[in-house]
Amino acid sequence: MILPVEVMVGAVRGGTSILYAALGETVSERAGVINLGTEGCMLVGALTGYAVTASTGNPWVGVLAGAVAGGLLALVHAILVLSRGANQLATGLVVLFLGLGLTSLFGAAYVGRSINAFKPVGIPGLSSIPGVGDVLFNHDPLTYLSYLAGPAVWWLLYRSRPGLILRAAGERQEVLAAYGHSPLRVRYLAVVAGGALAGIGGAQLSTAYANAWFENMTQGRGFIAVALVIFAAWHPIRAVWGAYLFGAALALSPALQARGYGFNQFALDAIPYVVTIGVLVFLGRRRAHAAPEGLRKVFEMSGT
């Protein structure tokens, strides 16, 4: 396989779990709540997805369970932030540690177990197109589903009435309240939905990408997702591209090493983070304006 194709295949393969999590975080942040615990939601999604797949033999049931688990953990975040007035950033980290702890407590039994995982399914016809077929049409079903997830979230946020209400909760909750909606309920739903999407991302990681469970297997992907949302200026389609960019950077070092280039993997691993900071530096001002009004209080983006 030539290098660009291999990297792009890797971008899609490695980017999909981040894509789901980043879309979830977009939904949550659009409603005005940042969840640094996305990493924890992905972890519980990964373990629950793996465990339920192991016991039912059906990875679809596993993914569904992973979504529920991610949503439940996000609910903890929502309760603390929305009903108890706790700081969003700190609570997110609490949720992360809860996820880390719960998955190591309940996950030990699943280390080294094999499951009936998702298998790559070539799309007839399309998968045999040179290059493109390998990049796009030779993946597991959750990856195909992810192609629809980005546009679906975009449509939901920008073209549907619930999306308008959700964005209003993040921008001007007084207006929303004046129209007789409950901003609180909308935010709860958004945070939980965001956690559920992160849970799906985690489940994709364990049941379709790695086909294994091990402690702390998300390795910072949830944090990448949070960073991506800002990189993407809270726009779902840009978040999708960002997820693939991260996937590509992750795929680049093994691909180069396989070709005998003596690249140190970790120098390359740092690239996505440096790129994100670079993008923020160049687009910082514009991006800051794109932030939902409700988030500015958290980030204190006004002033200074």
């Binding site: 640094l36 950033l89 910072g220 944090f223 990448i224 949070v226 960073a227 800002i230 140190n264 970790f266 120098a267 691993d269 740092a270 983070y273 440096v274 994100t276 900071i277 923020l280 530096v281 160049f282 910082g284 001002r285 800051a288 980030f299 204190e300 983006m301 200074t304």
Partner: peptide, 27 residues
């Protein structure tokens, strides 16, 4: 400095810089 010059939020940059530091250590 990034916060003051280009108004990138410090919560985000410090978080990202964590990963750069980890990769530097590993390298």
């Amino acid at each position: 400095v990034l916060r003051l010059t280009v108004r990138v939020n410090e919560a985000i940059t410090t978080l990202l810089l964590n990963y750069v530091a980890i990769d530097l250590l590993l390298y």
